[in-house]
Every structure is written in structure tokens, then in C-alpha cells.
Amino acid sequence: MSFLPSREREYLESKGIVFQEVIDGSQKGVILPSFRLPSNKYDVHQAEVLIVLPPGYPDVPPDMFYLQPWVKLATHNRYPTAANQAFMFNGVSWQRWSRHNNEWRSGTDGIWTMLKRVEHALEVAA
């Protein structure tokens, strides 16, 4: 079943980004398998990224994102700040990255905005 707006599916496909749309109970999530993490920053080189889409999306912003497997900062061997809580989705315990979004522009922003937020959060995590 597809629930992403067609322009968002087309965007991901045009960029060659592999994605899965998954429904778990009342929650809808987009999973990006084999997402490359910043070089030498984490204890793994890639992870799955989960973006849970809230009711009302895309007018309502996704709030956080989640990784599987759980990752630690390579230089400190600890979880990044605000990334140490579990979130269950589709029978899997995901690492919750608490990164709130107060700048979402309804009608303009979409999955492309969330991907940039994920990339930025992974780059600057400490």
C-alpha cells in the first residue's frame, strides 16, 4: 500500500533512493534501507532510517527519525545526545533521534526536507 504523496514517491525514485512504505497499526512509516552514515563518525557505516509520518502529513511535520541498528559515536563509544531511547515499529526496536521540527512549511516541505534534516542531524551529532 502506498501512502506517500505521489510527488514525494517520484522525488525519491528520481534520486535513486530505495524506500519502503510500512504501516504498523495506526502508524505509517517510510524506511530507507542502507542509508550511508557520515564517514568515521559512527560505529557502523550505514543503517536503516525510519521516518514516521504523522496524521495530516504532509501539512503536519514528522517530528523525529529512527535508526536500526542503534549507532554510537565512534570516537566516544556512546550514543549521541538525545538518541538513546527505544521506539517500537513493525516489531523492531529502533533508536529514536529526538530532533524536533518547528520550521516546517506546509505546502512546501516534504520528504526531501526530512532527508536533509536527517543528514544534518547525523553530521552534527555529538
Rank of each mutant, 00 (worst) to 15 (best):
K41I: 03
V60I: 12
Y11W: 14
G25L: 10
N77W: 10
W97T: 00
D63N: 12
V30D: 04
E8P: 01
A126E: 14
R105I: 15
P58E: 09
Q68G: 03
L115V: 04
T108W: 14
W94E: 00
S98L: 08
K116V: 09
L122P: 07
G91V: 03
S39N: 11
W70T: 05
D59N: 10
Y79W: 08
S39E: 15
V44Y: 08
Q95S: 02
E8I: 09
W97K: 02
T75L: 14
W104C: 06
I17G: 01
Y66E: 00
L115W: 04
A121W: 05
T108D: 12
V18M: 13
E123I: 11
R7F: 07
V92I: 15
W104D: 06
H100A: 06
S39V: 12
F19N: 03
T75S: 15
Y57A: 01
K28C: 12
V118Q: 02
I17V: 14
N77M: 10
F65A: 01
F35Y: 15
E103V: 09
G56V: 04
A47W: 08
E119L: 12
G110K: 13
A125K: 08
I31H: 03
T75K: 15
G107A: 09
V124R: 06
G56S: 01
N40R: 11
G110M: 09
Q20A: 08
N90V: 00
L122R: 02
S39Q: 13
K72G: 06
A83M: 11
V44H: 05
R105L: 14
D63R: 13
D43R: 04
H45I: 10
H76C: 06
R36E: 14
T81P: 07
L115P: 05
E48A: 12
P5W: 05
V49H: 02
R105S: 10
V49W: 01
S14H: 09
V92P: 02
W94T: 00
P61H: 00
E8T: 02
L50A: 00
K15F: 06
Q95R: 04
V30E: 06
T81S: 13
Y57S: 03
